[in-house]
Write a protein that binds this DNA or RNA. Sequence first.
RNA 1: GUGGCCGUAGCUCAAUCGGCAGAGCACCUGACUGUGGAUCAGGUGGUUGGGGGUUCAAGUCCCCUCGGCCACCCCA
Length: 431
Amino acid sequence: MAKPRIPTVKGTRDFYPENMALRRWLYEHMRAVAEAFGYQEYDGPFLEPLELYAAKSGEELVKEQAFVFPDRSGDLITLRPELTPSLARMVAQRQKQLPLPLRWWSFGPFWRYERPQRGRGREFFQWNVDMVGVATPEGDAELAAIGAAFFRRVGLRPEQVRILVNNRRLMDAQLEALGIPPEQRKAVFRLIDRKDKMRADAWEAYAAEIGLSPAQIQGLYALFERHDLWETSDELRRFFAAADALGVRDYIRYEPTIIRGLDYYTGTVFEARDHEGRFRAILGGGRYDNLVAAVGGEPVPGVGFAMGDMVITLVLEAYGLKPDLPQTPAQVLVTVFDADRLLDSLRLAQRLRAAGLRVSTYPQPAKLGKQFKYANRMGIPVVAVLGPDELAQGQVTLKHMGTGQQVQVPLDAAAAQVRAWLAPETPGGAA
RNA sequence: GUGGCCGUAGCUCAAUCGGCAGAGCACCUGACUGUGGAUCAGGUGGUUGGGGGUUCAAGUCCCCUCGGCCACCCCA
């Protein structure tokens, strides 16, 4: 039985119907939230020239984390590892004609050549939401509010997930005050980013290694305790006031150690974490004010975030919020009594479909028990039986699998009966 | 790319010192010739991830490889 199988490519996933249902569920919530804020759906190519990323992204990304291959002419093609460069190009190409600010969102596959682990694969789906053409803290807050609105919509409460916020300009000023020169800041940002990922002694050794004095290290520690630091930043005060007005203040917290790894963030940065810190970042984003310029356009400010499908799924699972989705769209299974009555069953199924129901038939004659069992396994709520007795009277027997209730009705009353049974749970069943 | 842990039936796992590969669940059949879930009985199912080595004998020990998980790295 166990034939030699061709395995999936490392780090990729098969989407069986139940997985596909969840992916679609995520997509529908993302769409609903993005559209509630007036964002338009868009997408870029999955294949891009290597140069698109070489132009702006870090060396590491392109050289070690992207799937790159030559096409038949020898040009180097990349499976997109992120969407932002494509967005930047799309904006730059139509910079003069696009109405700013533009608000765009997307959900699609991305690839990174990484070592797969829990919550991280080589092929994953990512929700991207960006606002381009606005450089205000209120714009930043809108993006954070979209993330928060998604959490609220799927049932994640502020005690469970938080969006942690900081601001790079604020941190820059603080580092300045500690006497850390500009050329050292990038390394120090990196150091701060690793604060919670390293043991204290290793972290301090690393800090000393990049040239920080003991006094400066103590200064950083003091900084990390300053959860009120945002009050000294005009940008963040406006950010939090806007978050308050948008009704998501409870999801958002100032966190001085949030800095984000990416070099191109220029102002506010944020990421969402589960409260217990069991999982990696659920979403991450921030303000990038020079992005479009890097692919040849005039500088346009932007702010956005991305959320991968894998971590959010783990988080939903952990909090018991992963939905139980119907296994099958079918509302009715029409059984096949025997070979002579097969066509009668097909006719009934078609009649029910014409009445707007979603109907599948058992594909061949079989013992009724087996067919009922199939309906049970597939989660089909209503079973129709069309045997000699029913056919002789122009009727059909309907059974509701949930309650066990069973009635015999005229053929032309069947659809109404099914609808009456299903009405409370699927009001939109009709076409 | 570096280091560590782990791969046994469809799933979850067991198998003593290296000594006949097992259980539960699932699946199929029957008890039940027009009705699912429950119960009972029986049955199918394995190159122990793959390859090589040591040995009279390997799920077990050694090497390689593939995959999963964890920590680095990174997280666009």
